[in-house]
Amino acid sequence: MSETRIDRRFRALKQEGRAAFVTFVMAGDPNQETAFRIMQGLPEAGADIIEVGMPFTDPMADGPAIQQAGLRALASGTTLKSTLSMIREFRKDNDDTPVVLMGYYNPIYSYGVDRFLEDARDAGVDGLIVVDLPSEEDEELCLPAMKAGLNFIRLTTPTTDDKRLEAVLKNTSGFIYYVSIAGTTGAAAPKASDVAQSLQRIKNATDLPVAVGFGIRSGAQAAEIAEIADGAVVGSALIDRIAAAENDDEAVRSVMELASEISAGIRSTVKH
């Protein structure tokens, strides 16, 4: 594979000596216009990589916050096609920030794998996280995605043993997403001391950057993770700000405030 925006961003951050701030937002939440404004504003608020959720009716790995975000997005008429259109629009003013599509295989399968990969690449997508496609199914999407020049990013968990880890890492590129808590998204915050041991085991098996997600809700928590990981992923906390907002302007403002706080926490840590 040729180098992607994700590869370039992690290399630049390594030279800076800090971890990446990876944000997750749902396409079309709370509506398509506001979701686009939020995506547009995230890089200035400090996001290094943006994960964009593909709304799906049966998000089995997600907790209540992201499930509700998906329902709001579907109610606003969001489709995979409109999600790709949002990213294409984003790319008109931002050609640097890596964008990762995250979700489930069903919408991609329905769209058509070959057509999806071509449209995703043309829209400016850099990588995919598809949570319900195990490594045994690599020929379905992983290998075609890599051939199309998209990173295929895998999740590992505290219960991933050494044998399974080897299979997970086999065709992974871009970075590894370490799910630090057993359970659905938005669970309790991870303890840095517990995460550090697992991260070392993963790093012994791969040279890829490792980003840690699930449960990070503040700048202080993000700083703790940034001390030991190559990236901190924040999703449910941002989604909660959207859900609590009384109007669209407040949703944008509130998400940017929290993103800026978390970004400052991550940037306060310097690796030597």
Rank of each mutant, 00 (worst) to 15 (best):
S2V: 09
S2Y: 02
T4S: 14
R8D: 04
Q15P: 00
G17P: 01
G17D: 01
R18I: 06
F21E: 10
F21P: 08
V22T: 11
V22G: 09
M26D: 06
G28D: 06
G28N: 09
D29A: 08
D29Q: 09
N31S: 05
E33V: 00
A35W: 01
A35C: 05
I38E: 00
L42H: 06
E44A: 15
D48Q: 04
G53T: 01
M54N: 01
P55M: 11
F56H: 13
F56T: 09
D58H: 15
G63E: 10
G63V: 06
A69F: 04
G70W: 04
L71P: 00
R72T: 07
G77R: 00
T78D: 01
L80R: 03
S82D: 01
S82N: 00
M86S: 01
K92P: 03
D96C: 05
M102C: 09
Y104G: 07
I108M: 06
G112I: 10
L117Q: 03
E118L: 06
D119F: 00
R121C: 05
R121W: 03
D122V: 01
A123T: 02
G127C: 03
L150N: 03
R154T: 13
R154K: 13
T156N: 10
T157V: 13
T160A: 13
T172C: 15
F175D: 11
A188S: 14
D194Y: 10
Q197L: 14
L199P: 14
L199C: 12
R201F: 10
D207T: 13
V210G: 10
R217Q: 12
R217V: 01
G219Q: 05
A223N: 11
I228D: 11
A232H: 08
A232T: 14
V233P: 07
S236E: 04
I242Q: 01
A244I: 02
E246V: 06
D249K: 06
D249S: 07
V252Q: 11
V252W: 10
V252L: 15
M256S: 14
E257Q: 15
A264E: 15
R267G: 15
K271S: 11
K271T: 09
K271W: 11
K271H: 15
